[in-house]
């Protein structure tokens, strides 16, 4: 069952310039794995090599911050919308 994923500008180069794509999976992790299988490299900035969510990317499921749901184990299903937004962050010192 497809889940709609909104793709930020930074990652559109990986998905042929599309602003939205669809993927399948029962959890965010499965969804992103499906996406990665079709668009290799697209999740590099989303999932860490250790398999967690990158600190400076926000992933939302139906407008809720996935960090406060179940992170990558958050359940998703037909009709859900996932949005990916890189953090807007920085500053004069170290973060």
């Amino acid at each position: 069952m497809p889940v709609r994923i909104k793709v930020p500008t930074l990652l559109r180069g990986h998905v042929g310039g599309q602003a939205q794509v669809e993927a399948e999976g029962g959890t965010l992790r499965e969804l992103l794995a499906d996406l990665e299988s079709r668009y290799p490299g697209v999740t590099e900035r989303i999932v860490t090599p250790e398999g967690g969510l990158h600190r400076f990317v926000n992933v939302y499921v139906n407008d809720e911050d996935a960090r406060y749901l179940g992170a990558l184990e958050t359940e998703v299903g037909d009709g859900d919308t996932v949005a990916i937004l890189p953090a807007v962050a920085g500053g004069s010192g170290s973060s």
């Binding site: 926000n58 911050d65 960090r67 937004l85 953090a87 962050a89 920085g90 500053g91 010192g93 170290s94």
Partner: peptide, 16 residues
């Protein structure tokens, strides 16, 4: 969201 003199980060929900 950092409330810091040396860093900033937008609150994720406000950003969305």
């Amino acid at each position: 969201a950092d409330q810091s003199p040396v860093t900033f980060r937008l609150d994720p929900k406000e950003q969305l």
